[in-house]
Design a protein around this nucleic acid. Structure first.
Length: 271
DNA sequence: CTTTGCACCTGTTGGC
DNA sequence: TGCCAACAGGTGCAAA
């Protein structure tokens, strides 16, 4: 589920409910996520007040006066707000119980997600320090992408999915953005012209912005929901459509593998 | 430095 | 229906 739009939607859904709340209790049911949840988290957070929620790449940052709780949803994670006392289900690994009688619950069947703590400047955390620009911020522009791709022989799809180049472009939206830009996923990044870099930047922005506007590919209620996604069938142009006709020209969509991930493209619309 | 493939997990899907 | 393999939207890391 969680590509950047889902994380952004989650952030927006939670922010107003968490900000200013004190932590009444921290519950760790299953500490073995991608990295272990710190054992001392309950002690660290008890009675402390949430000052703000932010997002950096696909990390959700819960800021306190004395440090930051770093959350990542991995491949299958979701967060929801429930009344305190709601019984936990199978994959509910972590709760923040709030002073207002609600709790924020992390559910993550595959456990590729993360719950970490960092005191001090969170941008200096090893997981965040080397990240590239946000795709929706002005630093990510045509000049930057052109400069960054020079002399790169790697496929453009792999490059835009590289966190050090730009964050938050996952497999689905990489495929969709390349279709919008009319660029083949296997094209060597260094061969892109300035004009095509500009098109790609705009395509990435438009694809992500549109997905955020639609509530991500998954719509959730954050308050009172059980975290089960209510599915919103996203109208993908190429992702998952191998063999089906291109929505623009009717040519069958092709599939290939790049870096152990599936890529999809229209051989006529994308060059 | 870049590139490649593995690893962490469970759930779902599709072929036989 | 059952069984099993393949695959899934992330991404850090070791090895080459």
């Amino acid at each position: 589920m969680p590509e950047l739009p889902e994380v952004e939607i989650t952030l927006r859904g939670l922010a107003a409910h968490l900000t200013g709340q004190a932590i009444a209790k921290v519950v760790i049911r299953h500490a073995r996520l991608r990295w272990p949840i710190p054992k001392n988290l309950p002690k660290l957070l008890h009675g402390k007040t949430i000052r703000a929620l932010r997002r950096r790449a696909k990390y959700l940052l819960v800021e306190f006066d004395h440090g930051t709780l770093i959350l990542h949803l991995g491949m299958s994670g979701s967060l929801c707000l429930l009344p305190a006392g709601t019984p936990a289900e199978k994959h509910d690994h972590f709760d923040l119980v709030l002073g207002n009688g609600m709790l924020m619950r992390l559910r993550d069947p595959r456990r590729f997600g993360a719950v970490l703590w960092h005191s001090g400047d969170v941008n200096a955390h090893p997981l965040l320090a080397a990240l590239g620009p946000e795709p929706l911020q002005p630093e990510f522009d045509a000049a930057y992408l052109y400069r960054t791709t020079r002399n790169k022989t790697a496929a453009i799809k792999l490059v835009i999915m590289d966190n050090r180049v730009v964050v938050g472009v996952g497999n689905i939206y990489a495929n969709e953005a390349l279709f919008r830009a009319g660029i083949r996923p296997q094209l060597a990044a260094g061969k892109l012209s300035r004009e095509r870099c500009a098109r790609l930047v705009e395509a990435i922005r438009a694809t992500l912005t549109e997905a955020i506007r639609h509530g991500g590919s998954t719509l959730r209620n954050f308050v009172g929901s059980d975290g089960k996604p209510g599915y919103f069938q996203q109208h993908y142009r190429v992702y998952g459509r191998a063999g089906e006709p291109c929505r623009a020209c009717g040519t069958p969509i092709k599939q290939l593998r790049q870096g152990q991930r599936s890529s999809f493209y229209c051989p006529k619309c994308q060059r």
